[in-house]
Design a protein around this nucleic acid. Structure first.
Lengths: 214, 214
DNA sequence: ATCACATGTGGACAGTGTCCACATGATTGA
DNA sequence: TCAATCATGTGGACACTGTCCACATGTGAT
């Protein structure tokens, strides 16, 4: 499958993809431009034809993550159009799942690695969309009189904090969602997502109580 | 003030202190053992007499942060012993302030830089104490019938998520607590901390609604 | 006074991000 | 068709990093 030609043809995408893989497997602090290039089979300077520096490649990786998140959110808005509470919960659930499954990518996206003032507009745009879709969901819930009538942006911010904090605790391992190895014994592993789901549901309930009309 | 003697005398503490300073000024990813040593005026290998590697020094810096947080929390518990709601709010407020004032330290403490399985017990202990003091506060509020009677650990977890998420958004700059330069016009700027306080208060309200008895 | 030991020093090495001049080959215009 | 252009990839170089090593220096116990 290896290219014998001098030019790679699709190096930019390869950089982002392999970069994401290496990020997920090796961790955010031990990822290196040179290793990404080496893995692709290209000189250590080739990346500089597509990104000004390492920071920019990381931004591109994070941006892809945000786009993936946004895409999923719009799908959810359609699927649960009639049920704002589910919209909100599934949206939360998806972020938490991502934090659990790809903690390193998640930390790159939501941690402080990418300074907001030095980063490019595409990334800003992509990350803003996440908040915006949440605002839409809440506004929709207010229209259907399911959520209270406070400023939807502040409610979204509040929800986003909850989501991000929870996800951060999951991804950083401070909150354990799987039984420890010696506890799991004969457990069925398909239950992983159910276990996580139940946990999130419980925490979500407390938060939701403050959000719902009654 | 510089030591002329061969031995420094208090190098371990100096490493943590200067390390914290450099962390706050230069950012978490551009901090280096060698620069810390250089700043103190000591050979590039001296730190290795006190820490096994860079990771361990970072852990010590984070640990100091957690201890500071815990100390403040116990002070608050005494000061507002009669008022669990204020206890909780002031505790939240303190974390957020820290995130706003020392974002890099905060990210080191709550981001994913320090893997929980590879890090030392002192750090684990110190960070666990933060959650524990929150649990105490909530349990106290339940005893005084101010907070609802759900599992206090889960409530604390939920609160901690909220706090951490909010703080993360503050420290990473995703949540702006000052108006942008061109928006501020004739506003009085001594109000910064009041402004932050008001903002947090609003978000806290939404969350608190789900927590309070009524 | 001596000797072990904790602490600090400098050299070395592999690995990194980034700059540079140069190589290659696809595209375009005559 | 053929040459020129320009985006793309290459290798060398540099300063810097974390970490290992052998060695130097003082301190404190015997």
């Amino acid at each position: 499958m290896q290219q014998t030609s001098y030019h790679h043809g699709d190096l930019r995408n390869s950089l982002v993809n392999i970069g994401t893989e290496l990020l997920n497997s090796k961790g955010i602090s031990s990822i290196s431009l040179r290793e990404i290039a080496r893995t692709i089979g290209v000189g250590h300077n080739a990346p500089y034809r597509h990104f000004r520096n390492k920071q920019q490649l990381l931004e591109a990786i994070a941006e892809a993550g945000f786009r993936q998140l946004a895409a999923r959110n719009t799908r959810l808005e359609l699927e649960f159009a009639h049920d704002p509470e589910s919209q909100l919960f599934e949206s939360v659930m998806h972020v938490i799942s991502m934090a659990a499954e790809k903690p390193n990518l998640f930390e790159l996206m939501f941690g402080g690695y990418l300074q907001p003032d030095s980063c490019g507009n595409e990334l800003k745009q992509a990350s803003d969309d996440a908040l915006k879709s949440l605002v839409r969901i809440i506004r929709n819930g207010q229209k259907q009189q399911v959520f209270i009538e406070k400023d939807p942006v502040k409610l979204a911010l509040s929800a986003m904090s909850m989501i991000q904090g929870l996800a951060m605790m999951v991804s950083s391992g401070k909150l354990r969602l799987q039984p420890r190895p010696h506890q799991l014994e004969s457990q069925d592993w398909g239950q992983h997502s159910n276990l996580l789901r139940g946990m999130v549901l419980q925490l979500f309930d407390v938060f939701l109580l403050g959000l719902k009309n009654r």
